[in-house]
């Protein structure tokens, strides 16, 4: 306890009628201001019925341009709290998406994930309402589709066919060069896991497309 802290206050001018006048006057001025606003238009809106527009640059819930994304993990690495997780299998140039989740329990909407993206495919949207009935639902998947689309399948098939043709041509060329004896070898590379590795792309594609 410090004793010198009970500082004597400067003697106040005790003006009796002055105090009365100040009180009445300042109260009247204040009530005038509040009365003016009593009739003014409200600045609030009825929220769920009426929503204020969010701006162009608003940092809301992310959206992903899935067809552009190359699953490079740059955004996940840039994230200060590691709330982004992604998983895809590579089929040559095509990606079979398994998940791209953002944990909105952690996300602090700092936009640091947007800047490092080499393909400019993750953005922050204008949605801000994060009302869910269960915490688990806050781990949101940004993917609009999972697995392979029909287009992708066609493209993979084409790439596969091209590859096979190329391999066949190579093999034929080799056979021609060596004089036969070589066997066709397209599936020897060994299966890559979920992470997908471009080195094993060609053989993966051959493996994961049994219909071909």
């Amino acid at each position: 306890m410090m004793t010198d802290l009970s500082i004597p206050t400067a003697p106040r001018k005790r003006r009796y009628w002055g105090n009365v006048w100040d009180a009445v006057k300042s109260t009247a001025i204040g009530m005038g201001i509040t009365f003016k606003y009593l009739w003014s238009k409200s600045v609030t809106v009825q929220y769920p019925d009426e929503k204020l527009p969010t701006d162009e640059r608003y940092r809301g819930i992310h959206y992903l341009e899935e067809d552009l994304c190359i699953c490079c993990d740059a955004c996940a690495k840039a994230c200060p709290i590691d709330c982004i997780e992604m998983e895809a299998t590579r089929h040559g140039k095509e990606l079979e998406w398994h998940k791209f989740t953002l944990d909105y329990q952690k996300c602090m909407f700092c936009e640091l994930c947007v800047y490092p993206c080499p393909k400019d495919c993750i953005h922050m949207g204008k949605e801000y309402a994060l009302v869910v009935e269960d915490r688990g639902q806050l781990v949101m998947d940004l993917l609009s589709w999972k697995g392979l689309t029909e287009d992708q399948k066609v493209r993979i098939a084409e790439a596969e066919a091209k590859k096979a043709a190329k391999a066949a041509a190579q093999a034929a060329a080799q056979a021609a060069a060596k004089g036969g004896g070589a066997k066709m070898d397209a599936g020897g590379g060994g299966g890559g896991g979920g992470g997908g590795d471009s080195a094993a792309g060609a053989s993966d594609a051959a493996e994961t497309e049994p219909t071909h």
């Binding site: 969010t54 701006d55 162009e56 640059r57 608003y58 940092r59 602090m108 909407f109 700092c110 936009e111 640091l112 800047y115 922050m124």
Partner: peptide, 23 residues
Amino acid sequence: EKICGARLTYSFIRPGGVFNDAP
């Protein structure tokens, strides 16, 4: 919000400058 997209936790001024120029 118009300049950085956030209303409270801006993360706008960064080492080396600012993230965005004014719109």
